[in-house]
């Protein structure tokens, strides 16, 4: 599937989400997936879901709202602890989407 979109959120949608998105893009690229990311504040996730229509959400903070999209904890992308495992999970999830 082309044009896979991932919404990356953090407190303000600027700092940690940008770092997480950079890292995620690199890790997914090495797994053969090219994705488009958008960053937003955790509080804006619901609104962004309807405009950006992400295939998955990666957040470094808790996402308080319920959204019909799978949310991954993005903290490993900042701390490095479990980053490869997270990238494997996200890649596997995205591949299930493109298979269906």
């Amino acid at each position: 599937m082309s044009d896979l979109r991932i919404l990356v959120s953090c407190g303000t949608g600027i700092a940690t989400s940008t770092l997480a998105a950079d890292k995620l893009k690199r890790l997914l690229k090495s797994r053969g997936l090219s994705v488009t990311t958008a960053s937003c504040k955790a509080a804006e996730v619901a609104g962004k879901v309807s405009t950006f229509r992400p295939h998955a959400i990666v957040s470094t903070t808790q996402v308080a709202v319920k959204v019909p999209i799978k949310v991954f904890n993005g903290l490993p992308l900042i701390s490095g602890v479990g980053a490869d495992q997270l990238a494997d999970e996200i890649a596997a999830y995205l591949k299930t989407l493109s298979a269906s």
């Binding site: 953090c10 407190g11 303000t12 700092a15 940690t16 955790a42 903070t61 903290l75 900042i78 701390s79 490095g80 602890v81």
Partner: peptide
């Protein structure tokens, strides 16, 4: 206020670091 709303304690495995924004 920012730390209250969006805390920044970050676990690196063997240690943790705070990144107050």
């Amino acid at each position: 206020e920012r730390e209250r709303q969006y805390p920044t304690g970050l676990d690196f495995g063997d240690f943790a670091v705070a990144l107050p924004h």
